[in-house]
Amino acid sequence: MADERTTPRRRTPRSDGIRTRQAILDEAARLATVEGLEGLSLARLAERVGMSKSGLFAHFGSKEELQLATVERATAIFTEDVFEPAAEAPNGLERLQALLESFLSYVEVAVFPGGCFFASAVAELDTRSGPVRDRALGVVADWMSALEGAVRDAQAEGLIDPGVEPAQLVFELDAYALLGNGQFVASGSKEALDRARRAIANRLDAVRVARSL
């Protein structure tokens, strides 16, 4: 049996250390939507959060580790702000509407100054390989899967035309949302998001099954 005096113990992170790490990652995610994940360096982030580079290095041992942790933090925020509000919707159609509205609201309240974190990350990393790109693309795939699942549920519930191809409908709805995101970030005008909302509503009206009275 190992001598307890010489056996290293795993240190439990202190709550203040966890809060510090989260605050750093919140700033990293905001910075990444403006300057890009590739522009996210320990030195640049240390400057923004008022820490020494060596102090920041204690939290993240490399640039890639910082990037991956930033993506994970952005994922947690996206889950809380977009996925979770739609989870209790009573049917597939309302869940689909709630997901899209939550996305537009997440953009509108400027959670990140560069708009949707993942729209920004994927546009930057789309031609590059590696774990950071793969993780960001995984979140986008989860988003598309959630939308498509809601469409399929709505079709099974008799709320959306069963002849509609779910993947095509989701492609169109996501395109409206992403265009709203991009134009809002570029112009600062909420008119772009209002147009996205109207386009989404019109498209859903076109595929909604008419309910007889």
Rank of each mutant, 00 (worst) to 15 (best):
M1V: 13
R10G: 02
D16N: 07
T20R: 15
L25E: 09
E27C: 09
A28C: 10
T33W: 04
G39P: 03
L40N: 04
L40W: 10
S41N: 08
L66T: 03
Q67V: 00
T70V: 05
V71Y: 02
V71N: 06
A74M: 06
T79W: 05
E80R: 15
E94V: 12
E94K: 15
R95K: 14
L96Y: 11
A98I: 04
S102D: 12
L104Q: 13
Y106E: 06
A110M: 10
V111F: 08
P113G: 02
F118Q: 09
S120K: 03
A123C: 02
D126L: 03
T127L: 07
S129A: 13
G130M: 01
P131C: 00
V132D: 07
D134Y: 04
L137F: 14
A141E: 13
A141M: 11
D142P: 00
W143D: 09
S145P: 01
E148N: 11
E148M: 06
E148V: 09
V151H: 11
R152K: 15
R152L: 14
L159G: 01
L159S: 01
A167N: 13
E172T: 13
Y176D: 11
A177E: 08
L179Y: 08
L179E: 11
G180K: 09
N181L: 01
Q183F: 05
F184G: 01
S189D: 15
A192I: 00
L193M: 10
D194H: 09
A196N: 05
A199M: 08
A206L: 13
A206R: 12
R208Q: 12
R208F: 03
V209W: 02
V209I: 15
A210M: 09
